[in-house]
C-alpha cells in the first residue's frame, strides 16, 4: 500500500545540521534562540530533542524547514544538509517544493492546525494535489488510504467530516496523515502529543513508532517529556538555552546521564515503585535569553557550578563514542 521513494543506502545520513544559529530580533536586542546546534540523523532513525519551554527546540525544527517566523527571525549561519543538499542556501521556490514533499511537520495543537472550513479529506489531499498534481479523485482515494494507515476507523465516511466533528486524537491522526501524504523521508513532530490526554498520547506515540517501521520515514520528535522520547527515539539531544548540552543514544543517556541538567530532568520525573515525598526540581528558571553572559548558560542553576563555569562556556566534548556533553566537569581529561 505504501510505496517508498527511491531508497538510498540504508545507513546513509539523511539530515546533518551543523552549527545552526537562528536569531530573533527584539526591541531589547538580538535573541539567540538557536545557538550553534548540531544534529545528525540516519535514514529511518528517530531522533528526539528534549528541553524546557523556550529552549529553542521548536525553533530548531522550524529552522530546518526554513519557517522561522519573519520578519524578526532569521537563520544567521549554519548548514542544514538534507540528502546532501544544503537547505540553508536554497531559494524559497525550491523550499516550497521540498516542504511537505520531502520534509513534513506536525504541530502541537491539532485543534488549530486544521482549517475549520474544509473536510479533512480535502485537507489531506491538498498537498498531494499541489506537489504531485493528483486529480481530485486520486487525492481522495489516497486520503482514504492514508487515514486507514493512521488508524482512523471507516475512513470513507471520515474524509467528509470537518475538523470540529473529530476528537483531538483523530485530528492528530489526520495531521499525521497529511504529513505523510507525499511520502516525505523526514517528519518533524513538534510536541505531537502535548495537547492530547494521556491514553491518546500513548496511542499516537505507538502510531508514530508503527509508521516509522511500516514506511521507513524518519522522525524528529520534539518534546519536553523525557518519557515520550525514551519510548520512541534511538538518539536524544538535550537542549538548554539554544544549545545542545548532551547528546547520546537513548539507552546510554538514560543509563548514564552526564550533564547536570539532564540528571536534573531525570530526577524531576516521578517513578513508579520508588517512594519519595518530594520530587527533585531544578532550582531557578530558564535564563533570560538576552543576557546569557559568557559562561555556561546552566551555571546559575547548576549544583556543581564552579567559578570558571561562569566565565567561559564549555565546548561539546565526546566522553565516550556517540555520547557528547557540554560541561566543564568532563573536560578534565582534555
Amino acid at each position: 500500500m505504501y510505496v517508498e521513494k527511491p531508497q538510498h543506502n540504508e545507513n546513509d545520513t539523511l539530515l546533518c545540521v551543523r552549527n545552526l544559529k537562528t536569531h530573533i530580533r527584539s526591541d531589547a536586542g538580538e535573541i539567540r534562540v538557536v545557538d550553534g546546534v548540531d544534529l545528525q540523523m540516519k535514514r529511518g532513525e528517530t531522533v528526539g530533542i528534549v528541553g524546557e519551554s523556550g529552549c529553542g527546540k521548536s525553533m530548531t525544527g522550524l529552522s530546518i524547514l526554513r519557517l522561522v517566523p519573519g520578519p524578526h527571525g532569521r537563520i544567521v549561519s549554519g548548514e542544514i544538509l538534507f540528502n546532501g543538499q544544503d537547505l540553508a542556501s536554497l531559494d524559497e521556490k525550491e523550499m516550497v517544493r521540498l516542504r511537505g514533499n520531502e520534509i513534513a511537520m506536525v504541530f502541537q495543537d491539532p485543534m488549530t492546525s486544521l482549517d475549520p472550513l474544509f473536510a479533512v479529506g480535502d485537507q489531506i489531499g491538498e498537498s498531494m494535489r499541489f506537489h504531485q498534481k493528483l486529480s481530485r479523485k486520486e487525492a481522495r482515494n489516497r486520503a482514504i488510504e492514508l487515514l486507514k494507515l493512521v488508524g482512523v476507523p471507516s475512513p470513507e465516511l471520515r474524509i467528509k467530516d470537518r475538523p470540529d466533528q473529530l476528537s483531538g486524537g483523530l485530528r492528530q491522526r489526520v495531521m499525521l496523515a497529511s504529513a505523510l501524504s507525499c511520502k516525505p523521508s523526514l517528519v518533524i513532530a513538534d510536541e505531537p502529543t502535548t495537547a492530547l490526554d494521556v491514553t491518546i498520547q500513548a496511542q499516537i506515540l505507538e502510531l508514530i513508532k508503527q509508521l516509522r517501521e511500516e514506511t521507513g520515514t524518519s522522525f524528529i520528535l520534539i518534546s519536553h517529556d523525557l518519557g515520550v522520547i525514551a519510548e520512541n527515539c534511538q538518539h536524544v539531544s538535550v537542549m538548554y538555552a539554544g544549545k545542545i548540552v548532551e547528546s547520546a543514544d537513548v539507552r546510554e543517556l538514560f543509563d548514564n546521564p552526564l550533564h547536570p541538567y539532564t540528571t536534573g530532568l531525570m530526577e524531576s520525573i516521578p517513578r513508579i515503585g520508588v517512594r519519595k515525598d518530594r520530587l527533585e526540581a531544578i532550582p531557578g528558571i530558564v535564563p533570560n535569553p538576552l543576557d546569557l553572559g559568557e559562561g555556561c548558560a546552566f551555571s546559575p542553576r547548576c549544583s556543581c557550578s564552579e567559578e570558571h563555569c561562569e566565565q567561559k562556556a564549555p565546548p561539546l566534548v565526546e566522553v565516550c563514542p556517540g555520547h557528547e556533553v557540554r560541561c566543564w566537569k568532563y573536560c578534565n581529561h582534555l
Partner: peptide
C-alpha cells in the same frame, strides 16, 4: 498553527 501547518506542507 493553521497557516504554519500549511506552510510546512509546502503551500
Amino acid at each position: 498553527l493553521l497557516v504554519k501547518a500549511e506552510e510546512a506542507l509546502g503551500a
